[in-house]
Design a protein around this nucleic acid. Structure first.
Lengths: 242, 242
DNA sequence: ATTGATTTGTCCGTATGTATC
DNA sequence: AGATACATACGGACAAATCAA
């Protein structure tokens, strides 16, 4: 007999249905990140499914950082961070790395467009506190470069300090994800270390100087130069850059 | 007996270990998206773990679109799309929607910075074929607006056509994810429908006209105006816009 | 069109590891 | 140290989907 018009069956996969219902539960109860969720046993009886289905659904949600599972403690609402994006982009870049570096170059292009566009907005939002902090970070880079040490942490903090005043939490998180992917993938390849650290330091110094002068256009050009340096490291030029 | 210094155990969670080993397997064998993976039974014996652990690991990787599972058929390498990002951002926006619309506004700001920055690059890359296609889409919008119909598909295709010539696959995918999140979240809220569709059409027409004139600056301003219109819909203004 | 083989989906029962009190 | 409440892991069994003979 063909399927009658009984009820619109939303999902035939129990696991996927549980996944949606858990998300619905969080939204309906207005739970915030960190709030405790029902235990696996409670979800089993509440949804009328087996433990395996509950666990598979929770594992999927955990991978998206929508829930956080602590062994022996319980399950909680996740932070909804961009960790899944970083994981996915890392895989995406690595899986195509055998043939070309396109996936990685695309991430760099995106970073460039973003940071260049953000420069104009940042120029008006930066206060004296942030500017001196940025200058301090550049001095730290100078010392590290002179001592022959790499300075990934300083670089990361530089870009993060730059965009904090915008009040947009998504911006530093997205750029952080891009940064994470690049350094993870670059580690697999040869070009993990900066071939010209003193040049990189100079680029950062230029950016701060332009921002202190409230010269948004110069800051944009300095940032573009910065990325031209990074892009060259990836073994191929950047396209579509006027 | 306390744990002796036998072997450096990387991961005590079997499920997480399996997750990493599957990714490693894909990378080592150089498998591309769509390529078949070992069956669950094969992974069990190869990794020496139970089927549940294999399934939980695969479910997590499925959520990240790193693997694709087809019932009764097999498991395959995934497309590594940005679907996980869209899912995560949607949840992120909805979970905070009770208090404020900040998460959604942050996404819109990001979209604005991106599309505005892309305008300059797109202006030089667009050919006659794309320009006339864009004009055709605008005419379609005009008709839809005149008939009182909404035109989400045309809007989506417009932005996609715009950035295809850049040769960066990540750009349309990321913007597509943002678009998807916005319309999904807007649907939950009241403001799903455009209150002034003819104005939206006019904005798109401005963008195309500026691009045909190869006037990147004007295209950027038109795009900024476009977003100012969208941002107003979200019930609060956009910050940090010079 | 039916059967059979393969593979993923779901359920059950049981034992173990982990964190808290 | 003991007890409790969790998540973690294993094994076996059957259901459902897909494909090929």
């Amino acid at each position: 007999m063909a399927r009658m018009a009984e009820e619109p069956i939303r999902e035939r996969r129990v696991s996927g249905q549980v996944r949606r219902e858990v998300v619905e539960l969080i939204l309906e109860r207005g739970l915030r990140p960190g709030a405790p969720l029902p235990t696996e046993a409670e979800l089993m009886v509440a949804l009328g499914v087996s433990r395996n289905s509950v666990r598979e659904a929770l594992k999927a949600l955990q991978a998206l950082d929508i829930v956080e599972i602590r062994h022996g403690h319980g399950t909680y609402v996740g932070q909804a961070s961009l960790t899944p994006l970083a994981d996915g982009l890392t895989f995406r870049a690595l899986v195509r790395l055998r043939d070309d570096t396109r996936a990685l170059v695309e991430i760099l292009e995106l970073r460039e467009v973003l940071e260049e566009g953000l420069m104009r907005r940042v120029a008006g939002a930066l206060g004296e506190a942030e500017l001196s902090r940025l200058e301090l970070l550049v001095r730290g880079m100078e010392e590290a470069a002179a001592a022959g040490r790499a300075f990934p942490d300083l670089d990361r903090e530089f870009h993060e300090t730059l965009y904090r005043p915008l009040g947009n939490e998504l911006v530093p998180q997205l750029l952080g994800a891009f940064w994470h992917v690049f350094h993870r993938v670059a580690g697999v390849r040869g070009w993990a270390n900066d071939p010209a650290p003193e040049l990189t330091v100079a680029r950062h110094r230029d950016i701060v100087a332009a921002l202190r002068a409230k010269d948004a256009g110069r800051a944009q050009r300095a940032m573009a130069d910065h990325f031209r340096g990074i892009g060259a490291r990836a073994g191929q030029g950047m396209r579509g850059v006027g």
